[in-house]
């Protein structure tokens, strides 16, 4: 699967999405579900562009895909529209996406937001405070990207930073935050 990805994306100008993302990365060593197997070869690269993160965990991509198509029957088709548009506009990096004007196209942009949302929240779907039915499709807790921009100051809940009382001092970044 990964070799196919490399070949396919050569046309995209792989320089913007480092090879290390794809080269030498074997997929997860457990059996993928059918839905996960259907993860499009360009899904990781497109996710990397839209989240402006070259360092996405490749093993996470099939799980993200699985969650997206589980919660939205039409997602596969919608995703294809997004990836086609991005190919048509030769988008290989975040600045490309910004400059392309695609973010003004509500429908296309909403698909991009769905992809980004899945990576950031670690789930797809709305949280239901009083239900255990139709709850979000779970992807990851620790891998959710929403934690990374604050992890120098606060905790990811249930993971300690250190001993008691650190919270009494102002965070070192507070002057420039």
């Amino acid at each position: 699967m990964m070799r196919t990805t490399r070949r396919r994306l050569l046309g995209y100008g792989v320089a913007f999405v480092p090879l290390c993302l794809m080269g030498g990365v074997s997929g997860p060593s457990w059996a993928l579900t059918e839905k996960e197997k259907g993860c499009p070869p360009d899904f990781l690269a497109i996710s990397a562009i839209l989240t402006a993160s070259p360092e996405l965990n490749p093993i996470m991509a099939p799980r993200v895909w699985h969650a997206l198509i589980t919660k939205d029957d039409a997602f596969m088709a919608r995703y294809r529209r997004l990836s086609d548009e991005m190919a048509a506009h030769r988008i290989r990096s975040w600045p490309d996406y910004e400059a392309s004007g695609l973010s003004a196209q509500k429908e296309i942009h909403s698909i991009a937001v769905a992809v980004v949302g899945a990576w950031y929240l670690g789930r797809v779907g709305e949280v239901l405070p009083r239900s255990e039915i139709n709850t979000p499709a779970f992807i990851t807790y620790e891998g959710a990207l929403m934690w990374r921009s604050t992890r120098d100051v606060t905790v990811i809940p249930t993971y300690a930073r250190g001993g008691p009382g650190f919270w009494a001092e102002a965070p070192s970044s507070v002057k420039t935050d």
Binding site: N57, E142, W147, R151, D152, I156, Y159, R161
Partner: peptide
């Protein structure tokens, strides 16, 4: 460094 997404954490 506090990080749940480092290479070793992954």
């Amino acid at each position: 460094i506090y990080d749940v997404d480092s290479e070793q954490a992954r």
